[in-house]
Design a protein around this nucleic acid. Structure first.
Lengths: 138, 138
DNA sequence: CCATTATTCCCCACTTTTCCCCACCGTGAG
DNA sequence: CTCACGGTGGGGAAAAGTGGGGAATAATGG
């Protein structure tokens, strides 16, 4: 659990920073995530995603809708000298992030959650961790 | 049964260390395990698991849920000069590990248990060791 | 177009946690 | 008895995390 200060800044945990490729130059793209969290992509991963988006069709209404939703709040930003990321206000509002945040590294990106919303998300699923694992990893 | 000191450190038993490949460089990944224990993966085994995770889809809600649960508390750490591993506080809380811990080597990884919870787990199963063996190993 | 307000960014300072190191104790083998 | 090895404890330096002032930049309103 990490704190968000008055100015909307969060410290990216050192253990996650270690895994980010050094040639991203501490640059990240923040955007709307799934289940009311925020996604934070290191710029290299974001570029890959953007490539995939380019393969979608601007003439298909569903593709259009998805692209708009994803990019609407997207914002690039660099870590400051203390390795903090500042979260634009619109994104903080979207994810209901106030003074504390849960940070999860998920392979290609980082997720930011309002801690309470994350707990609700976890408990909203009747299946246990063990049974999901059994199903997913079989 | 091993002790956990004030700083959350546990000595990895010498007999288990022997089985860990030397080129892991004493590096392990700790994470949430099943039935309220913790998993400790030697880094080489963890990398295999991570490969499998990367083959899951971030766009499938169940896959997402599993990835989050597994990685939420994951943390890499190296043995200190006395072959001890330090367990992050959030993981200790998850597994209810305080001053003592039961350590079980399980082929590809190591499990850490609150001793009392482990005893309850054993007795919670009405089937006997022998009958489970017969079923599992047939 | 200028003035006012708000936001962002850069810097410095402080607190807390982690990690590295040294020391000790007990047990079993020689 | 002594030595080696496995296990335990704790002090202190270094790193990680937090907070806030003030200049630069951008947005807002007249």
């Amino acid at each position: 659990m990490y704190s968000v200060d008055e100015k909307g800044r969060v410290n990216l945990p050192a253990k996650l920073r270690k895994y980010v490729s050094p040639d991203t130059n501490d640059t990240f793209v923040l955007t709307r995530g799934f289940e009311k969290c925020l996604f934070v992509y290191p710029i290299d991963e974001w570029n890959k995603l953007e490539e995939n988006l380019r393969n979608l069709s601007g003439y298909d209404p569903e593709h259009r809708r998805f692209i708009r939703a994803l990019l609407e709040l997207a914002s690039e930003s660099q870590l400051d000298a203390q390795s903090r990321l500042s979260i634009p206000q619109e994104l903080r509002e979207y994810a209901n992030i106030e003074s504390e945040v849960r940070i999860i590294g998920t392979l290609d990106k980082i997720e930011l959650w309002n801690p309470q919303i994350y707990d609700e998300y976890k408990t909203s699923q009747p299946e246990t961790y063990e049974s999901i694992a059994a199903k997913v990893m079989k």
